[in-house]
Amino acid sequence: MILAEEHVMMKKVFRDFAESEFTKELQERLDSTGEFDWDIHKEMAKYGFMGARIPEEYGGQGGDTLTYVLMLEEFARVCPVLAIYPNTPNSLGGGPLMACGTEEQKKKYLPLIATGKKKLCFALTEPGAGSDASGTTTKAVEDGNDFIINGRKTFISGAPVSDYAIVYAKTDPSQKGNKGISMFIVDLKLPGVSFGKPERKMGINGYPTSDIVFDNVRVSKDDLLGPLHNGFTTAMKTLGIGRLGVSAQALGIAQGCLEMSIKHAKEREQFGRPLAKFQAISFMLADMATEIALARELIYNTAVEFDAGEDVAAKLSMCKYFATEMANRVAYKAVQIHGGYGYIKEYPVERMYRDARITTLYEGTSQIQQLVISRNLLK
């Protein structure tokens, strides 16, 4: 795809920011401590990245989906975990609000997350409901002007540092499967809300993940998001744009791995000549570059079609399936090209390799994407 001048300019802005602000010291600190960095969060908010897709009337930048994709690609090219920081408010966090929030809800919450003053997380997964999100057991019972929520959410990215959560709960137990589920905006400082210990993860350290437990949490009916008993449909639509975001993240990881591999292959010598002169190495680089180019075209075009109102449900899953599996193949080859150096933490490809692994898991595993694609083909 030939990018318009506007998108070329934005791509440069994102790349310049990542290369100047995502320092090696910051990345190493995030990976070793696993702690959220509020300083870089505030810096991203200052540049408007937290509200890249959020409409201007609600404090955002009003950017299109392609701009959002370019941002995540360029950020992940340097540091995958920091690409997640502005992703959530523009995707799983802000997405449900933009899709079906009332005007009052949009005015109340979107400006806060677009400007980085507050953080919002997406609470769908449960211990017994991962890929099968329709198996939700968290319940919300109507009580006067409120709902009382009881249940537990697990693997919630950003939970320990968030102010609010979009929570999915069963409101009509008589309806089976994915029916009878509603969405709520829950203030995580309400009585009865507690968090599990942050998980120790293989990668993307620096964006804490934990359980959220709801024990008789009283939520106002004003914070019911979207129609009663029909939250699952919105959840699936939100996951669609989220999958495109993960695809862009995977694309950035792969691009970063390729660039590091090219540099290493040119500089590292064996048997009296650079690695790049060996056909085995040069062919691996060729394979990596080809797969990245294919993923980029698919992702960019799907982003444009999404904004044009096309039915891209299957393509969103194709993007995530192909790009994330591709990123893992590319990261594997990057480590292989680096040899022993690729296994050492001092070299960024080691962290990229670990960070790439999550992309095939969260926001729908590769197997779930295959299921979505095949169902669209066979319906």
Rank of each mutant, 00 (worst) to 15 (best):
I368V: 09
T136G: 02
D31H: 10
V330G: 00
S366K: 03
M9I: 10
A327L: 10
D172F: 11
F36Q: 11
I113T: 05
K119T: 11
Q105T: 08
E28N: 08
K189F: 04
Q370S: 09
R77D: 03
L258H: 07
V213N: 14
G339E: 10
H264N: 04
I241F: 05
Q255D: 00
I113F: 03
V246H: 08
P173H: 07
Q279N: 07
G342D: 01
V167G: 03
A4T: 13
T23E: 12
L224G: 02
G231C: 02
R268W: 02
P80L: 00
F283Q: 11
F36L: 05
E325A: 09
R375C: 05
Q279H: 05
K153N: 04
K221L: 08
V161N: 12
L26K: 10
I2V: 13
R200N: 10
Y341M: 12
A308R: 13
A99W: 05
K277E: 10
G51W: 00
A129W: 13
I358H: 14
E325C: 09
E126V: 13
V246R: 09
Y164W: 09
R354I: 02
L224H: 08
K106I: 03
L285I: 13
T138M: 14
E56K: 15
Q27P: 02
F278N: 08
G177P: 00
K11H: 02
P208V: 07
D146V: 01
K170A: 09
R152M: 13
G48F: 11
A123E: 01
G95N: 12
F14Y: 15
D211S: 07
V349D: 12
G192S: 07
R268M: 05
K266I: 03
V217I: 02
R268N: 07
T67Y: 03
D211L: 09
Y109E: 00
M50H: 15
Q61K: 14
N178M: 12
A133R: 15
M98W: 06
D16Q: 12
P127N: 13
G130K: 03
G34E: 02
L188T: 12
G151P: 11
S261P: 10
L258G: 03
A334P: 01
A276Y: 15
V330Q: 02
A83D: 02
D163K: 12
P208H: 05
Q249R: 05
H229N: 15
G206Q: 02
G309D: 07
V372H: 04
S210E: 03
A265K: 15
P191E: 06
L275H: 08
I344T: 07
E43P: 05
F147R: 01
S174C: 04
A18H: 06
E346T: 11
D163P: 11
L97F: 06
D211K: 07
S317F: 04
I181P: 01
G192E: 04
S182G: 06
G128L: 14
Q255I: 11
Y85P: 06
V372Q: 05
D287H: 02
V213E: 12
V246T: 14
A331Y: 07
E142V: 09
M318K: 09
M260Y: 08
Q27K: 12
K221S: 08
A52D: 01
D187S: 10
T137R: 10
C257F: 00
Q175H: 07
M71P: 07
A169W: 04
M326I: 04
A280L: 14
I166C: 00
L316K: 03
K266H: 06
C257K: 00
P89D: 00
Y332F: 12
Y164S: 07
